[in-house]
């Protein structure tokens, strides 16, 4: 899930807000991108890839969802 947009790096171009497929990012009054709806993030990395100044950081894990069976080994590599 998206975890940060660095306002000190953001140049206010708005590309992330335009391209985010879940419309999760918005621009604030100071023309800086911010994460408006974090729980709707698709974890698609589109924003991180599109950002021309690398201001955005997406964590690779998607939000937890009900699974087909109980997770045996959450988040860890298997022995």
């Amino acid at each position: 899930m998206i975890r940060s947009i660095d306002p000190n790096v953001c140049i206010g171009c708005g590309i992330c807000a335009e391209f985010c497929p879940g419309d999760v990012i918005e621009m604030n009054d100071a023309r800086k991108a911010y994460i408006a709806f974090p729980r709707d993030c698709w974890t698609c990395f589109s924003c991180e890839i599109a950002c021309p100044v690398k201001a955005i950081n997406v964590h690779p894990f998607r939000k937890a969802k009900p699974m087909a069976w109980p997770i045996a080994s959450p988040n860890k590599k298997l022995a």
């Binding site: 990395f45 991180e48 890839i49 964590h59 699974m67 997770i71 045996a72 590599k77």
Partner: peptide
């Protein structure tokens, strides 16, 4: 896809401590 996989690969290695092509992780439907 649109280029996210190398980023994911690198972050799993650096932050989660596994390599998606060397270490096994659990899969589900």
């Amino acid at each position: 896809s649109h280029g996210w996989q190398p980023i994911l690969d690198e972050k799993c290695k650096r932050e989660e401590g596994y390599d998606i092509l060397r270490d096994n992780v659990e899969w589900q439907p």
